[in-house]
Design a protein around this nucleic acid. Structure first.
Lengths: 342, 342
DNA sequence: TTGTAGGCGTTATCAC
DNA sequence: GTGATAACGCCTACAA
């Protein structure tokens, strides 16, 4: 059942004027008599006229819609980002088309295509774990199509990236553990194809180095999935296999930290007395765990907001791509709770 | 910078045929020579032709886009629903435009307008806490415009609603506590103006009644905000003030359950030995708490999926609105974990 | 101050 | 088997 939307033509017919007059009257163009304007606006109101955004898009080759591509919606961090995106987009009169890739490259490429079909004005992207070839993005970037990446950002020169300072967050977290007297710190790392994983690992390494603690390569373990189950198993294996038992864990994400915490508990180890733990992301649940989990907070809302502002500024040519030489890096903050203080 | 998308015209010009021929060839219409089809498709591919969905929308008065209006994105339940929506929409070739109202009626009305402007084919709505007048929806419903409400659904006859069985979930949870030998069960209730709160309280009452346990009115306490801090304070007060100490809590939501659990721990009470606790919603963190929290799961994904299927079926006229006499009510499931088993 | 005509990209309809 | 034309709703250069 389609809505019988009133069009400019309808108003024109009713008033015995041309549709251009109506169009102009509605937009307060100069050179239209006040009388006509009044009549047009009155009738438009009465007929509940709503401009057809689709027709406008076709006319202007601008849809006032941005496409958001993220790995998963059900994810505290990403939902926070979406919220930031939505706020800014709404306040600036843009629509948000959303799609999740479920970490599949094929779906990511598919979404890019559909959204382009829909003539979106630009993309906000956090790419999937499967994505290592970025040609579906670079093709667009090379033509000057506006794309802003956030969180998971590619390492290509044309890209405009909004991230948090993963390095610094990881550095602080590791340093904090060292300050608390922990020495044998395991890093539960993220997937190595993600830049954020690399940065966090780099922060970990640097903190150890600065403290004069030698880096034990077997203390850096990749958690591919980042689930607590995975981290649980990995942590148990570590304690079973290693002759040199760790006394702390710095995890690439909170879920992995939880897994480590559960594993420690199941082994009869006390947190934080025997083992210190720090996570990354500061998910909502950190403060309700027992013990509460120290974590590095990422300003998700701000990431979304900032990325959207950048994108819209580019779309509206308020700034040129060339002006953005440096990637935008937002601050992280280490939130110290009980799991890492002894 | 706009993308120079190849159009049908471009292909036509290049091949010295008319655009109608190209259009037909691309869609495998009968009455086009195989030779022409081949040439057209080949060139389309080479020029990276992508149909302009905007032009199509204008032509067909159909946008293959649905509008989703929810109170908040950063909310485990809603993000799960979105995920379900997105999956079904994607699989059936529809786009999803998303907007959050932040619980503001004005923004809800604004979003309805913008989305209508964008010629969406239908709405999926969970309305804001401020919304008590539904005329902005009924106006559309009366014209036969497709809207499906979920979770927060209005009590108006024309509406098509998808909800979960809150009553049954609450009943099961309470009965489970009783079965485990708990007798003095406090209900941390939700805001009394929401139908879901009332239903959950009704389930609690009914379960007690069926078990022959008298209802103690002071054991039903409203948690307006539903935060763990609030529930923490309330729980402590209950233990301080009541001569008749409770031995279990059934909370309207998981956060409140967490607050109760933390309060019990802080009072030296053991969960589940001294106090049993069950929450509602089955948020992600339930299984990582210590002890793990029993909770009633709401099938958020399925709610989103089912609502979307209904909406698309209506849009595509696979079913008529008249056929849906009964509201869709999805089952809840009690997930029994450690916090309620002794 | 207002009207006319053309076009954004596509397809349905009618013609050849 | 293929082409010309009109139309979806809107805007705007050009005319009047």
């Amino acid at each position: 059942m389609k809505l019988e939307q009133a069009t400019i033509k309808d108003i024109a017919r009713e008033l015995n004027v041309s549709s251009s007059t109506v169009s102009r009257a509605l937009k307060d163009y100069p050179g239209i008599s006040d009388e006509t304007k009044r009549k047009v606006k009155e009738l438009a109101d009465k007929m509940n006229y709503r401009p057809n955004a689709i027709a406008l898009s076709l006319r202007k080759s601008r849809s006032f819609t941005i496409g958001v591509i993220i790995p998963e919606v059900v994810h505290f961090f990403f939902s926070t980002v979406i919220s930031g995106i939505e706020e800014i987009a709404f306040s600036r009169g843009y629509n948000v088309i959303l799609t999740q890739t479920n970490e599949k490259l094929s779906r990511e490429m598919n979404s890019v295509d559909t959204m382009l079909s829909n003539q979106i004005d630009g993309f906000l992207v956090s790419y999937s774990k499967e994505t290592s070839d970025f040609s579906h993005f670079t093709k667009l970037l090379d033509k000057g199509f506006p794309i802003v990446f956030f969180d998971r950002v590619p390492d290509i020169p044309q890209a405009i990236n909004v991230t948090v300072d993963d390095f610094s967050g990881a550095y602080q977290a590791t340093k904090h553990l060292i300050d608390q007297g922990y020495r044998k710190i395991v890093h539960l790392a993220g997937p190595s194809n993600l830049k954020i994983s690399k940065e966090r690992e780099r922060g970990y390494r640097e903190a150890l180095k600065d403290a004069g603690i030698p880096i034990n390569p077997s203390f850096i373990v990749e958690c591919t999935h980042g689930t607590n189950d995975e981290a649980f198993e990995i942590t148990k294996e570590i304690f079973a296999d290693f002759s040199d038992k760790p006394d702390a864990f710095f995890a690439n994400n909170d879920m992995a930290a939880v897994g480590a915490m559960m594993a420690c508990k199941s082994l009869g180890l006390r947190v934080p007395e025997d083992v210190g733990i720090v996570g990354f992301s500061n998910w909502q649940f950190c403060s309700i765990l027992d013990p509460t989990l120290s974590s590095v907070s990422q300003p998700g809302f701000n990431i979304g907001a900032k990325a959207t502002e950048l994108l819209l500024d580019i779309i509206e040519k308020k700034i040129s791509i060339e002006e953005i030489h440096n990637p935008v890096v937002l601050e992280t903050e280490l939130l110290i709770r009980k799991s890492s203080v002894r």
